[in-house]
Structure formats: structure tokens, C-alpha cells
Amino acid sequence: MDPFKSSSMSPSIKLPWLPVRTKMGWPRRGQIYVWITFTSLLLFFCVTLTFNGHVWKMFDSNMHLDEYDDANEGYGLRKLLEDPEARIERLRQEGLEKRLPQCIIIGVRKCGTRALLEFLDLHPNIKIADMEMHFFNKDENYDNGYEWYRKYMPFSTSKDITIEKTPRYFISESAPERIFRYNSSIKLIVIFRHPTTRVISDYSQVYENKLERNKSFEPFEKIVIDKRTGRVNTGYKAVRISMYYYHLTQWLLYFRRHQIHIVNGDNLIVNPLEEIKKVETFLGLDHAITDGNVYFNETRGFYCMKSGINQHCLGAQKGRKHPDIDPQVIRKLNNFYRPYNRKLFAMIGQKFDWD
């Protein structure tokens, strides 16, 4: 009996997805498998393209709509397929809004600002902006206004604290006054690291980026020391950034000392929980981040984050090994920074072991 014939199917009807019978009989089994495979692949690509088109349209309409994943845990596929405007309206009905930051991490570059931000993200009442916004230090961003700034903030409740981080604010001439005009009572966080170590870290990042683009780059010693005078080259931007005293002076023209919390970046590396607890106190929050949220990763060589069964470490570009530096150059840098460090300690009423 012909398996493709039945009393309810007319012989004149041709099914496009079935192989056609020839005078020599039905195609071989291999040909049938080819048709089945081709049909399955075509169907898969059609479904994939349709689904991805919908998801891309959703993300394109609001590139930061997924910043509040924790608030939507459990919604699963519905969250992906939900209309963006409908989702925003639902979040607002649940008391969630995109709020302007009540706290800003203003610096310093290569002192551990990203690590600090991600550790703080473990707190249930801290919501972080993933991007460095450069709102208060770049005219083209600042001219867009506060509503432009707000739309890149995470969703939060009225009990939460939103934090934004842009390390370049610390050395910006315009940022202190602009932030003061935005919110004169805002809380600011700055993180300091040994100034010489920070310069080397700064150099290491730029050096590796140059190598990846096959560009040449002078050795650290030739950049940091002026060839003509033999002194520390203050024309090198990385050297100037580590002169913390001068930059912090500009912030204290607008903000009171109690509004600025200073994190010990060197201690954050070896004892992150101690520094995190100080920040929680500064923000007026309960100590919700515990030793169960922090663990030392033997492979990476530094502390990582843990929330429930989820573990997270900073990217591979973080914690990079520093190049070997001539000890005489290191001593020269330490001597150069020592008077500036003493002025800084007197200004902030806090001392670090940088000698």
C-alpha cells in the first residue's frame, strides 16, 4: 500500500514539503532526510529572525530597559516579549521610577571605582548606573539636560539610593560647580590609592591598549621622568591625577567635608568588606553586605562578589599585572608625592600608609 495515498487525499494534490514521486518510484531515504533537514532549518531561521527582530526593537527603543533585572526576576520570557512602554508603566505601578542619583562616585581613575561600585550593587537598597555618564564634565552631555541624564539611571524605589560613577569628575574643572547646582546636599564618594601605584596602573592600562592595536609605546621610566631635568614629569597626565590634594581642593570649595566619603583603595583590595561597611554607614543604610557576599578567588588573585548561588568577578582587564619598574624611579615618585600626601591628610583628617 502506498503510504502517501489515502481515501481522503486526492491524487492531484501536491504537498510542497514532501518529495515528489517519480516514474522510478519514491526518492531514496537519504533524499527524504535532506528535505526534512532543509525544512527544519528554514523553519528555525524564520522563527529566530522573527523573535530577534522583536527583541532588538524592544532594546533599541530603550537601551537601558533591562537595568532593573532584579526587580523583574521570575518574569522570564514574558519580560522579553513585553511591550517596552507597557513594561515601564507596570514598573511605575509597582513604585519603581528612574531617579536621578543621590550619590556619585567622582573618582579616582585606576583606584578601584568599578570594584567599589559592583560591591555596593550587592546591597538591596543600592541601584547603580552601569555606564559612566560623563554628564557633569562633558558639555555635549550636560547640555542635554537632567531628563536625558535620568533616562540612563536604573529603576528604583523611593527607599533606594541610586549611584552613578564617573572617575573623570574628580579632575574636571566644571564638575564640582555643576554637581553643586544640581544638588548641593548630594553625597560624594572618592577613592584614593597609593599615588605611585595609581600612576603605574594608569600606564599599564594605556600600554596594553596600545599593544592590542599594534602601536608602540615608550617605557614607563622614559615617560614619567623628564629627560632634560631628570625630575618627575608633571606634564604626564597620569602624574597630575595622583596629586590628589590639588583636585580635592576644588571640591571643598563647594561641598562640606562630611558630604565627601573617602575610601581607602589599597584596603579595598585586601579587605573589601571593611571599606564597604563604611560606605553603608555614610549612606545611612543597614549593613546588608556580609562576608557571605565576598570571597577571595584564588585563580584571579583578588576578591569577587557572591549573591546566593551566583558568583561574579571583575572583567579580565581588571587586576592586570603591573610591569617591573626601576626601583630608583619608584623612589623618585614616592619622594615627589610625599609633600602633597601630607597636605591631603591634613585636609581630610585621615592618613594612609603611603610612605
Rank of each mutant, 00 (worst) to 15 (best):
N334E: 15
I241A: 10
T299F: 07
N125G: 09
I163D: 00
Y295T: 03
W56V: 11
A71M: 11
T196F: 07
P327W: 10
T197A: 04
R198C: 03
K151P: 00
H247A: 01
L49C: 09
G308E: 04
L211Q: 11
S7L: 13
W26K: 12
S12L: 08
A115C: 07
F180I: 01
L116F: 07
R28W: 13
T157C: 07
V232S: 02
D266P: 05
R92H: 08
R28L: 14
A288C: 10
N310M: 11
K23D: 09
I36K: 13
R178P: 02
T299E: 13
V232A: 01
R213S: 13
S216E: 15
V232P: 00
G74L: 05
K332C: 05
E173V: 01
E218V: 06
F59M: 11
F345W: 03
S61G: 15
K14S: 12
N137D: 15
I191Q: 02
H54Q: 14
P3A: 03
Y33F: 14
G235N: 14
S156A: 15
K318P: 00
E118Y: 13
R231H: 08
H287C: 04
T37W: 06
C304K: 01
H64T: 13
D143W: 05
M63D: 10
R87H: 12
L314Y: 06
D2V: 08
V279I: 11
T166C: 12
L273N: 04
A175D: 04
K57Q: 12
D160K: 06
G25H: 09
E177W: 07
N125R: 15
P3F: 03
G349K: 00
Y142W: 08
S201H: 04
G235W: 02
L100H: 02
R114N: 11
I32L: 12
V270S: 15
Q350D: 04
S40A: 13
I200N: 01
N310I: 12
E212L: 08
I171R: 09
H134V: 04
K237L: 07
F59E: 12
Y245L: 00
A288F: 06
R150F: 00
E132C: 05
H322Q: 12
E212F: 03
K222C: 04
L80Y: 10
F170Y: 15
H261K: 04
K187I: 00
G308L: 07
K321Y: 07
A175P: 05
I163W: 05
L77K: 09
E67T: 10
Y245Q: 03
D139A: 15
V199F: 05
F302M: 09
G112S: 06
N183I: 01
N310D: 14
I171P: 01
S185Y: 02
I309Q: 10
P339C: 11
S242M: 03
I225N: 06
V199I: 11
R90T: 09
N264G: 05
F192M: 08
K5N: 10
F217R: 03
T281M: 07
F38V: 14
G145Y: 01
P84Q: 04
Y207M: 12
T249G: 02
R99K: 14
L41D: 01
S61E: 15
Q317S: 13
I260R: 03
L188G: 02
A238E: 14
V294E: 02
Y169I: 04
P27Y: 09
S174I: 09
W35L: 13
D60N: 15
P84L: 05
R99P: 02
L41T: 07
K57R: 13
R342Y: 04
E298T: 10
